[in-house]
Every structure is written in C-alpha cells, then in structure tokens.
Simulated scan of single mutants.
Amino acid sequence: MGTFKHHIAKWNELSGEGKAIFLKATVSLVLIKTGLTILPFGTFRKLFHWLCDTKSVGEISQERIDLTVWAVDTAANLLPLELLCLPRALATKYLLRKVPALTLEIGIEVNPAKQFEAHAWVEKNGTVIMGNWPQSVLYQRIWVWN
C-alpha cells in the first residue's frame, strides 16, 4: 500500500505538462507492446520509423528529457504488462523523437559463459538516458536506430 500512496503523491506533485507526459508514456507503451505482439517485426519497424519521422528537430530541456524517461519507466512498472527494455526504449525514442542525436541501440551481452542476452537502450550524444545496466555487464552494439 505504501508504494500506491507514493505514486499518488508523485502524481499530485506533477505539473500539468508532467501529467500529460506520463499519460503519453502510458499510451505509447501500450501501443508499442501491442504492435510488437501482433505485427511482424519488419512491419512494426517500418510503421515505427514512419511515426518517428519528423522534419522538425529541436532541443528539449534536460529536465523534460528526465521527466519523460521517468514517466516511461514508471508507467512500464505500473502497467500490468511485461514491458522490458525494448518497449521502454521505443517509447522513449518516440516521445523524444524531435531531439537531435538521440539513438536507440540494441546490443548483445558479451559473455561466453552465459546464454544469449540482448538489451535495448537509448542514448543522447553517446550518453545512456534509458536502459542503463551494471558496469559489470558488457554489451556489444549490433544495431543503431537513428
């Protein structure tokens, strides 16, 4: 019950813009999860690329970027769906699509002793903003989605 009260208190602290970002993150995650589930990946990728294609780019404040990342992570944790790294990274990429130098990265863990493990994350100018991992893990990039 304590976490529920915490989330309600956090919601009440959000500005109108913050609440809108949280709701957009929630809807984006649900639609992305649905698309990944029902569409062939090639079709999903083309549709997602089309939706993210924008002629206008612009800087968004670091505060808004941080709020968007928080909203995606929090909504993903609250929704009754399994929303691992790929839907979170895709939602972040979509919501921040006008930010220049934002890339969605997909990599595989470099560890022969473990089974195959992939991870998706979002970077801005080479810095991970969504999908951080422990320093003890090393991922090799296999795909960059600009």
Results as ranks from 00 to 15, higher is better:
residue 22 F to T: 09
residue 24 K to S: 06
residue 25 A to H: 11
residue 25 A to T: 13
residue 26 T to W: 09
residue 26 T to V: 06
residue 27 V to G: 08
residue 27 V to Q: 12
residue 27 V to R: 15
residue 29 L to H: 07
residue 29 L to A: 01
residue 29 L to T: 04
residue 30 V to F: 09
residue 30 V to M: 14
residue 31 L to G: 10
residue 34 T to N: 04
residue 34 T to H: 04
residue 36 L to G: 07
residue 36 L to Q: 06
residue 37 T to E: 12
residue 38 I to A: 06
residue 38 I to S: 04
residue 40 P to A: 14
residue 41 F to R: 02
residue 42 G to K: 09
residue 42 G to R: 10
residue 43 T to H: 06
residue 44 F to S: 10
residue 46 K to S: 12
residue 46 K to M: 01
residue 46 K to V: 00
residue 46 K to T: 01
residue 47 L to F: 05
residue 48 F to A: 08
residue 50 W to V: 06
residue 51 L to W: 05
residue 52 C to Q: 13
residue 53 D to W: 03
residue 54 T to D: 13
residue 54 T to Q: 02
residue 54 T to K: 00
residue 55 K to R: 11
residue 55 K to S: 05
residue 56 S to T: 10
residue 60 I to P: 02
residue 60 I to V: 15
residue 61 S to Y: 02
residue 61 S to R: 05
residue 62 Q to I: 00
residue 63 E to R: 15
residue 64 R to G: 00
residue 65 I to D: 02
residue 65 I to W: 03
residue 66 D to S: 13
residue 67 L to I: 05
residue 68 T to E: 07
residue 70 W to K: 14
residue 71 A to S: 14
residue 71 A to N: 11
residue 71 A to T: 10
residue 72 V to G: 02
residue 72 V to T: 09
residue 73 D to I: 14
residue 74 T to F: 00
residue 75 A to C: 05
residue 75 A to P: 08
residue 76 A to C: 06
residue 76 A to V: 11
residue 77 N to Y: 07
residue 77 N to Q: 12
residue 77 N to R: 08
residue 78 L to W: 09
residue 78 L to K: 15
residue 78 L to E: 11
residue 79 L to T: 14
residue 79 L to F: 10
residue 79 L to Y: 12
residue 81 L to E: 04
residue 82 E to W: 08
residue 82 E to R: 15
residue 83 L to P: 12
residue 85 C to F: 01
residue 86 L to N: 05
residue 91 A to L: 12
residue 91 A to V: 12
residue 91 A to Q: 05
residue 92 T to E: 00
residue 92 T to H: 06
residue 93 K to Q: 10
residue 94 Y to R: 15
residue 94 Y to E: 01
residue 94 Y to T: 08
residue 95 L to D: 09
residue 96 L to K: 06
residue 96 L to E: 05
residue 97 R to L: 03
residue 97 R to T: 03
residue 98 K to T: 15
residue 98 K to G: 10
residue 99 V to L: 08
residue 99 V to Q: 14
residue 100 P to N: 13
residue 102 L to Q: 08
residue 102 L to P: 12
